[in-house]
Design a protein around this nucleic acid. Sequence first.
DNA 1: ATGATGTAGTTACCTTAGCTAACTAATAGT
DNA 2: ACTATTAGTTAGCTAAGGTAACTACATCAT
Lengths: 157, 157
Amino acid sequence: MPSASASRRPSASHLRTVDLADRIHSAAIHLLRRLRREDAAAGLPAPQLSALSVIVFGGPLTLGELARAEQVRPPTISKLIVELEAQGLVEREVDASDRRVVRVRATARGTKVLHDGRQRRVSALVASLGALSAHDRALLARAVPVLEKVARTAAEE
Amino acid sequence: MPSASASRRPSASHLRTVDLADRIHSAAIHLLRRLRREDAAAGLPAPQLSALSVIVFGGPLTLGELARAEQVRPPTISKLIVELEAQGLVEREVDASDRRVVRVRATARGTKVLHDGRQRRVSALVASLGALSAHDRALLARAVPVLEKVARTAAEE
DNA sequence: ATGATGTAGTTACCTTAGCTAACTAATAGT
DNA sequence: ACTATTAGTTAGCTAAGGTAACTACATCAT
C-alpha cells in the first residue's frame, strides 16, 4: 500500500484511484442490497445461487475447490452445501480413492433452479439495464470484464 | 464487443442484457466478499461505513431518511445506529417540534473514523485498481457513474 | 376534548452468511 | 507404527437483513 497516502504529491491519478475504489465499493453495496430484496419473491439467496452456479458450470468439485472459487472459508461452504443439499439441489459424493474428499455435483433440479432463479433474481437489474442508453449499456459491458478481473486479482493477495 | 449491437439482432441484445446483469451481480458478490475480509484488520463493517458516510456527507438525517437512502428497513437502521452510537461515532437528537423523529449527526470522531477507515477498507481494492492498465482504469472510471445510476434506479422501483 | 387513525422508531425474534477454533477422519511420510 | 498433514465438520460467535408487534407522539374529525 502507498504508505505515502498523505498527499505527498497531489497526484491527481492516485487520488482518483482511491475515489474510484470508494465509489465501486459503495455501488457494489447498494446494488447487492437492492438485489437482496428480490430474494423473498425469487429463488435462492445470493451466496447459494453463486455457489450453485459454480457447481453447475464447473462440474463436480471438491468442497475445498469450491471454497477457493467462492473466496470463503471451509465452514462457510460446508453450511451452504448443507442448505443446498437439503433442498435437493446438489449431491455429495465421497471420493473413492481418498475418502476425506467430498465432491458435489448439481442435481437436475439444481440445474433447473439455477437457471430459473438466476434470471428471476437479476430481473430487476435487467430492467434497470434496459432503461439505460445503448451507449451506457455498452460501456458497462466493456467494464464488467475489468471488474471481474479486479475481484479475482484482489482475491489472490 | 459492445458496439456489436449494430450488427446483432434485437433478441440477441436482450439476451446479452440478461448476461450482463448476471455478470454484474456475480462480480458485485465477489468484490464484496473480498472487501469483507479486510474488515477484521481495518475499520468498520461495510454497512456501518456506508451509513456513516451518508450521515457525514448528508448532514443530520432522520432515521427514516437514512433507511430510505440505504435501502433498508427501519429496524435495520435502528440497529446500525445503536452500534455507531455505542462507538461514539454518531449522536442522536430528538426533534423539538415532533418528538417522534430522531436525527443523527456524525461526531468529530465519526468523521475522522470515516475518512481513516474508508481508505483502509478500500485499500485492497485500490491496490488492485493500481495494478490495472491505465486504459482499464479509465474504462472503470467512466463505467462507475453508470453503475451508480443502475443501483439508484433499481432502488426506486 | 376526545377518540380514531397514522407515523417514527424500537423491541423481540428469526434467518443467513461470514469468521475462528477445535474437532474427526483419512492419508502420507518416516 | 507413529507422526504430521489434509479435508471437512461442529460449535459458537458477530453482523446484517427481514417481519410482526409494540410505544409514543401527532393529527384530524367529530
